Simulated scan of single mutants.
Amino acid sequence: MKWQGNRESDNVEDARAGGGGGFSFGGGRGIGLGSVAIALVAGWIFGINPLTILGLMSGGGSAPQVQQAPAGKPPADDPMARFVSVVLADTEDVWREQFQQMGATYRDPKLRLFRGSEPTACGMGQSAMGPFYCPGDQKVYIDLSFYETMRTRLGAPGDFAQAYVIAHEVGHHVQNLLGISGKVDSMRGRVSEAQQNALSVRLELQADCFAGVWAHHANNARQILEQGDVEEALNAASQIGDDALQRKSRGTVQPETFTHGTSAQRVTWFKKGLQTGSVSQCNTFEARQI
């Protein structure tokens, strides 16, 4: 992936030296360490974002009041942090233009680098969760050690695979701004667990498609793709499908517990966004078959 020398985002917060911070809940039921442990275990076994589980366990309510440690800008001599800053900047350029074409204004998300654990408006983030987006504070969170996990444990190496991960989380931010994730969240408690899982799958697949939309327009504008890059992203999408993760973790697959989509589905929707570059082609919620 060609990224060196491109613009870096001003929206990256480096909290890696802060050691986390304190946080308290302003609404809903409190979440103790036991609940966090349950969420982490369930996340690894079932491929579910642990923050989603924590949200369900907290019973909703108003957003928690969060006190985060002070954060600075990433050091200039940190190549991985610079890479993340460049990718985030590229998503900003693409989505600003896409929203302008829709007659709307794009609000840039923040991307917060952390180590170990980090308080968020969605609960206490943990490195074991992998990268995630919190709609409560409109931030993407990532512990950069996840990229080593991608390479060594998930079999998904490559810089464009790493960029795909960020673009997917930014895709959730786009959903938040468009009101899509809010509509899905409002269905909680009104549908069965199986129906809720199915909605979650469509939400995640749409974020994959939005990641493809970013790649399409970024490459058209800045020619960022090199030989093998698309294959890296498709491999990453395949390796983190619900069926692949469940098969790796316990040797069996339970489709009724899927929350992110199968490997084939994730590849299909990323490719659709990449090939068309069209936000309207990413409407997973009206697709008869995903």
Rank of each mutant, 00 (worst) to 15 (best):
His217Asp: 11
Ala211Asn: 11
Asp143Trp: 04
Leu54Ala: 07
Gln138Ser: 06
Ala17Met: 13
Gln4Cys: 04
Val253Ser: 03
Ser24Gly: 15
Lys110Cys: 05
Gly158Arg: 09
Gly22Val: 11
Leu40Arg: 09
Asp77Val: 05
His217Ala: 08
Ala264Phe: 08
Ala71Leu: 05
Ser9Met: 03
Gln227Lys: 09
Tyr164Pro: 00
Tyr141Asp: 06
Gln246Val: 00
Gly277Ala: 12
Thr105Leu: 05
Leu225Cys: 14
Arg288Ala: 13
Met1Ser: 14
Ala211Gln: 09
Val279His: 08
Lys272Ala: 13
Val267Asp: 00
Gln289Arg: 13
Ile290Lys: 06
Ala128Glu: 13
Asp243Arg: 02
Asp229Lys: 05
Cys282Thr: 05
Arg266Gly: 05
Pro75His: 02
Arg82Ala: 11
Asn235Ala: 11
Leu178Asn: 00
Asp14Thr: 04
Glu13Asp: 10
Ala163Gly: 10
Leu154Val: 06
Val253Pro: 08
Asp242Phe: 00
Pro50Asn: 12
Gln67Glu: 12
Leu56Glu: 14
Gln223Tyr: 09
Gln254Met: 15
Leu51Thr: 07
Leu234Trp: 01
Leu225Gly: 08
His216Gly: 01
Val36Asn: 15
Gln239Tyr: 00
Val86Tyr: 00
Met187Cys: 08
His217Cys: 11
Ala287Asn: 11
Ala237Val: 02
Cys209Pro: 02
Leu144Lys: 08
Ser278Met: 10
Asp10Tyr: 01
Leu178Gln: 13
Lys2Gln: 13
Gly19Thr: 03
Pro157Gly: 08
Asn11Trp: 03
Glu256Val: 12
Asp10Phe: 00
Gly22Phe: 12
Ala167Gly: 03
Asn49Val: 02
Asp159Lys: 10
Asp14Arg: 02
